[in-house]
């Protein structure tokens, strides 16, 4: 089972991201469970969503406290929350930032992860370029697919197009593909 936790802020599509990931995995015949950190959501407030992927039916219903993957949609959360709490040392880290881990003060910390398991991607900039809006979810999911290989880019794009009709779907799918390309070919750690 692969357990993914997504951190962001209300309005950034954090819950939608976990759902899209589950739709993509479902397309591949995986069992997928997506759920939000339940609460009264407010724009800008910290929000968490969860996704479990497995090859057999998923029975667990607890929040993910020991994730295999942490996706951070908004790096300003790093100052106020322990977004990486419980993350396995052989897990994956994907942070939305046009700066590197060094600038975020995490250079030493990410050394613990296997090579290629921790990446920063400029998802907001990629989203702006493709959507004209700073909504980084789809771009980050492309990065997730590239980084972990847990879902194929095509499944992700199909899930995005299914959820968002027409032009919005196409633009988000393109944003996902752009980040996928960035993360795919084992680049040096940023």
């Amino acid at each position: 089972m692969l357990e993914i936790r997504i951190h962001g802020r209300g309005g950034q599509g954090v819950v939608t991201a976990a759902e899209l990931l589950s739709f993509a995995a479902f397309r591949e015949g995986q069992y997928a469970q997506a759920f939000p950190s339940f609460g009264s959501e407010r724009m800008g407030a910290p929000v968490v969503s969860f996704c479990r992927l497995d090859h057999e039916p998923i029975r667990l219903r607890e929040p993910i406290t020991a994730p295999d993957v942490v996706v951070v949609q908004d790096p300003t959360l790093l100052q106020s929350l322990d977004v990486f709490a419980g993350l396995h040392d052989d897990g994956w880290v994907l942070v939305n930032s046009s700066r590197g881990f060094a600038d975020l003060g995490l250079a030493e910390w990410v050394e613990r992860f296997p090579r290629g398991h921790a990446r920063c991607v400029p998802a907001t900039e990629i989203a702006r370029a493709h959507l004209g809006r700073p909504l980084p979810s789809a771009a980050l999911l492309g990065g997730f697919a590239g980084l972990t290989g847990a879902v194929a880019l095509d499944s992700l794009r199909a899930a995005i197009r299914e959820r968002f009709a027409g032009d919005v779907g196409e633009r988000n799918a393109a944003a996902a593909a752009a980040t996928f390309a960035l993360t795919r070919p084992e680049p040096a750690r940023c």
Binding site: A18, A34, F35, P36, I58
Partner: peptide, 10 residues
């Protein structure tokens, strides 16, 4: 509520 009603799954 939430645990089941808001869960997305097959």
């Amino acid at each position: 509520g939430f645990v089941l009603t808001h869960s997305v799954e097959p």
